[in-house]
Design a binder for these strands. Sequence first.
DNA 1: CGTCTGCTGACTGTTGACATTTGACAAGTG
DNA 2: CACTTGTCAAATGTCAACAGTCAGCAGACG
Lengths: 220, 220
Amino acid sequence: MVTERLREDIIEGALAPGTQLSEVELAKSFGVSRGPIREALQRLIQEGLLRGEPHRRVSVPVLTKEDVADIYLARTALESAAAQSVIASGKSEETFRQLDRNVRAMDSAEAAGDWEAVKRHDLEFHTVLVAASGSRRLQRMFSTVISETRLCVGALTAEEARHHQEGESPGEGTHRKISEMIRDGNTAGALEALKKHFDDAVSVLTSRDSESDAEPASTR
Amino acid sequence: MVTERLREDIIEGALAPGTQLSEVELAKSFGVSRGPIREALQRLIQEGLLRGEPHRRVSVPVLTKEDVADIYLARTALESAAAQSVIASGKSEETFRQLDRNVRAMDSAEAAGDWEAVKRHDLEFHTVLVAASGSRRLQRMFSTVISETRLCVGALTAEEARHHQEGESPGEGTHRKISEMIRDGNTAGALEALKKHFDDAVSVLTSRDSESDAEPASTR
DNA sequence: CGTCTGCTGACTGTTGACATTTGACAAGTG
DNA sequence: CACTTGTCAAATGTCAACAGTCAGCAGACG
């Protein structure tokens, strides 16, 4: 449970990238001993949400543009495989219904200007897609990489989010296209739509000036 | 370092699938305290090499046929993405040279009947492919799934390995075909060859009678 | 003045011991 | 005889304390 709270703190942006974490400090703030803290840190390091070297304090990673591109490369690999698997195993219809629910939710949230809800249903869409594959390993790998994604988009401003969603309102959104391709069993089309979707996301995320491989911010 | 040794013990098959591990026992056998043991177990659990539930002893997983299929589905996803990335970034030639070195090594090892070496170079081939992608996340995910693969093939007998390699000697091996497709920049062909390669592997591994979802063996 | 050496402080890695929970065995009961 | 219940050993989760290591700094030396 301490792992969960720490993970949320990192993802939500409560801990700025570059921050260095001390085990004793965390232990005090969580009211537990260093043992559970160490376990939580280990897990988060293996999930890629923290970086740690021996005898050095763990730190929240600062994601370079290369990292963002790499994260989305990994997501392309995972979600493409999931889409193929879903279509191949004939679960297109069922999956489409779940996917479409999130597409609609995203549309209405967007109309209402609730960008938090848009992000939430965006994540949910992709999670549903991978879960529909039924592959435990795909899901396991996805859960770690989606955490890193949240680390990227967590800092997105409403303006940037709006820019990303542009042209998605009428019925031409890439999410909608992906779900329809899956419904129709069009594997090649789904893969192409996924790749385009992620390429767009990468260009939005890497277009801003920050996020370069600048030196980490100072601590305390 | 204790993680490494434990990992090897599991992969090499020194610890039979279904075996339940006690922290105190491991601590005694490794000559360290329970702290490092717990950390090692946590890592291996997250790598999928061990299963653990709260307040329950961790155990070496017994892989069902579904697990084997799932592992290879994950590998297909990862290595397909790696191959695409390698071709797209124009590193086909360079990668081919590294790949071909392992193909030749496999051929000669096969001729010599050294199945251990065949397995080693097989693993090395796929590791090189993923490493050539330059994607840290692809490599990270691959390293965990390749461990599970070693867990599968670790128990392979020479006879079964030979059967798997059948028809690979003259120059028609699927490894060779994959590497050549990459050299030629034939993305679709490489993906197809990879898929066929893994499908073959799955049918070999799931054809034997054991490996079903039988109840775990007794402990101690 | 620049560089190197030795020290201080803090933090991590590890240890042994304590509290809590689980699974099983045995006794009791309808 | 089957089922429930009480008890107990063993294993896990947690804690506070000890030893080893690294970053930073003051001072000495060329």
